[in-house]
Design a protein around this nucleic acid. Structure first.
Length: 270
DNA sequence: AGATATTCCTGGAGGC
DNA sequence: TGCCTCCAGGAATATC
């Protein structure tokens, strides 16, 4: 599942073929990804030059010289392929550059989204306006303030994009394990010192995943279509019943919080 | 504020 | 082999 590291890797991959290029052709095969696409999307993008690519939380952003930004979210199963060759099922959106590269957005489950937003209004675009700070920017003091008094489980609060933006299920589990924090603990009860450690482990785990080329769930492909990585091993995610890698003698447990799986070591995490 | 449920969607896994 | 059910997940939304 694409989380922040996968989006970062994807943006970097797209940048290699897109930055500075003129968009020669757009093919939007579905008008209805998560939200309806503007009817004039083709006109606004065709002939425009891509000036910059960037990432915000789990969104990728492609800016053009015509004042528009194309914003994508990969949802659960989204991926970009560069020069896919033949046609793939679920290729919903294709972009051709002036030097002949084809970029295809493929998303079987269609939980992803595609939006065209005026670049100078991007900060007030509702999906962006609601986002909390980036994990690489947030300070422990800020996180402490944002969690103060909150009774909900720390695991759930870290998944809340308004509190801290960009974390998903996998890296929240991994970061909490490394920080030795029990995912069931209420957000407001985590001490400032432990939040210092948590901010560090969040950054560490994200940096490592980006370095490994994005993570590693079976179906993730890098932008150029290379198939998935098993290079990054998780300590707890999807390891129910297996021994704790910390060597504490405990066993990784799976619980359900907010309707989704949490993996942790009850011996190590308090 | 928080807990829980539902919706979107497909493919992969496991049961029989 | 195939048919069935369940499950995975991010984000928006609804309800109590």
């Amino acid at each position: 599942m694409p989380e922040l590291p996968e989006v970062e890797t994807t943006v970097r991959g797209l940048e290699r073929v897109l930055k500075g290029r003129r968009i020669a052709r757009i093919e939007a095969r579905r008008a209805d990804l998560r939200r309806a696409l503007p009817l004039d999307l083709g006109q606004r993008l065709t002939g425009a030059t891509v000036t910059a690519l960037s990432r915000r939380a789990k969104y990728g952003r492609i800016d053009t010289d015509r004042g528009d930004s194309l914003i994508f979210h990969l949802g659960m199963s989204g991926r970009w392929r560069i020069d896919p060759g033949d046609d793939h099922k679920h290729d919903h959106f294709l972009l051709t550059t002036d030097d002949g590269h084809v970029l295809a957005l493929n998303d079987p489950r269609r939980f992803g989204s595609l939006d065209l937003v005026a670049t100078d209004e991007i900060d007030s675009w509702p999906a962006f306006a609601a986002l909390g700070p980036e994990p690489f920017d947030i300070e422990a003091a800020t996180l402490h303030r944002r969690l103060a008094g909150r009774k909900a489980a720390i695991k759930l609060l870290l998944l809340d994009q308004r509190i801290i933006a960009g974390l998903g299920n996998i890296y929240v589990c991994e970061a909490l394990f490394r920080a030795r924090i029990n995912p069931k603990r209420s957000g407001g009860s985590v001490s400032r010192a432990r939040l210092e450690r948590l901010v560090r482990t969040i950054r560490d785990v994200l940096v490592e995943a980006i370095a490994a080329g994005g993570s590693s769930l079976r179906d993730f492909a890098s932008p150029d279509g290379e198939l998935g990585y098993f290079s990054k091993r998780f300590d707890v995610y999807d390891r129910e019943g297996q021994e704790c890698r910390e060597g504490c003698g405990g066993t990784v447990k799976r619980i359900v919080q907010g309707g989704r799986s949490t993996f942790y070591c009850p011996r190590c995490q308090h």
